[in-house]
């Protein structure tokens, strides 16, 4: 009898103590998960492919909720579900769906080995960030591509590759989701996430050099020298020159390609157009680069800017009011 009693008491008290510990631990270490995470995860494809750059769909859902608390889902995209899924996610999180105009990453540098001579040799960890700490790096251009491939490493979709011949990264437009990881990884901000454009056609200034014309020209044969010719020729006020660098506003650009022909440095490039009859839009060869140097002496930006403004205003057929709009 006694034995049974002891056993009951001992086991009972062990049970009680264990229950108490469990109860306290359950209180203390309780994990409160945001309900929204589960809801968002529900609409995701549950492929757990990791293509979004997060560990599985629940990881992505968590990131969405976190981003929503900050007010925007920018930069987050489920590559499997695409835009429709993201709209659903935005709906759950009480945000408006992002404008669905497709975008793509554009590398704004054409400083290939021929166009931009190497003046030094970099030795060290193969990382653009490391080379960036050494001033202008291997070339004399302090704004151009460093060529160590930080963007390639950042891309989760295998959409950006180094071209060993040019030493520049190339974007695979099919694969690019415009997530912006490469743009963030680039220490020089060369990569722009740009509107894909009508039929994927784009006209872009392939340069990021903010030095004055003479210095730019010394460093690279296809750099933008801020001569303002493109500004003058553009009928749609799509081109602005800021800090010695021309920029084409993708929303205003009507893809007329006049600027491309006008640019003495061949810094403006048109993508995905059918080949021109008289002059194919091929990547510039050193010969074309030299032609640019010959035709144009170093212009002074201030002088050129003054007549440029009225010139663009009068013949414009499609004047848009948003002149003050800052570029992205």
């Amino acid at each position: 009898m006694n034995v049974i009693l002891i056993a009951v008491i001992v086991l009972g008290s062990i049970g009680l103590v264990a229950a108490l510990i469990l109860f306290l631990a359950g209180k203390k270490f309780a994990v409160h998960e945001d309900e929204r995470i589960a809801k968002v995860a529900e609409v995701l494809p549950q492929a757990n492919c990791g293509g979004c750059g997060f560990p599985g769909c629940s990881g992505f859902a968590g990131a969405c909720v976190k981003a929503a608390d900050k007010g925007s889902l920018e930069g987050l995209l489920c590559p499997v579900g695409g835009q429709p899924v993201m709209e659903q996610v935005a709906g759950i999180l009480g945000l408006k769906a992002e404008a669905s105009a497709p975008k793509v990453a554009v590398v704004r540098c054409n400083g290939t080995c021929e166009n931009r001579p190497r003046i030094a040799e970099f030795d060290g960890a193969q990382s653009c960030k490391v080379q960036q700490m050494l001033g202008s790096g291997e070339t004399a251009c302090a704004y151009g591509c460093l060529g160590c491939g930080d963007c390639v490493a950042a891309c989760q979709f295998d959409a950006i590759r180094m071209n060993p011949e040019t030493g520049l990264p190339e974007v695979d437009e099919e694969k690019c989701t415009a997530c912006g990881a490469c743009a963030k990884a680039c220490p020089r901000g060369i990569i722009e996430i740009r509107l894909k454009g009508l039929k994927n056609r784009r006209v872009v200034v392939l340069c990021n050099n903010k030095d004055k014309g003479a210095q730019t020209r010394k460093a690279c044969s296809v750099g933008c020298i801020a001569c303002q010719k493109c500004v003058k020729v553009c009928k749609f006020e799509a081109i602005t020159v800021d800090q010695n660098l021309a920029h084409i506003d993708a929303e205003k650009c009507k893809l007329c390609r006049k600027c491309e022909d006008e640019c003495p440095q061949n810094a403006i490039h048109a993508f995905n157009f059918p080949p021109k009859k008289e002059k194919p839009a091929s990547p510039p060869t050193p010969l074309q680069g030299e032609r640019g140097v010959d035709t144009q002496a170093a212009p002074v930006t201030e002088k050129a800017a003054a007549p440029a403004a009225p010139a663009t205003e009068k013949p414009a057929t499609n004047v848009e009011p948003a002149k003050e709009q800052e570029k992205a």
Binding site: E121, F122, L134
Partner: peptide, 8 residues
């Protein structure tokens, strides 16, 4: 001469 550049 093309100098070699690297961090310390």
């Amino acid at each position: 001469m093309k100098p070699i550049i690297s961090l310390s």
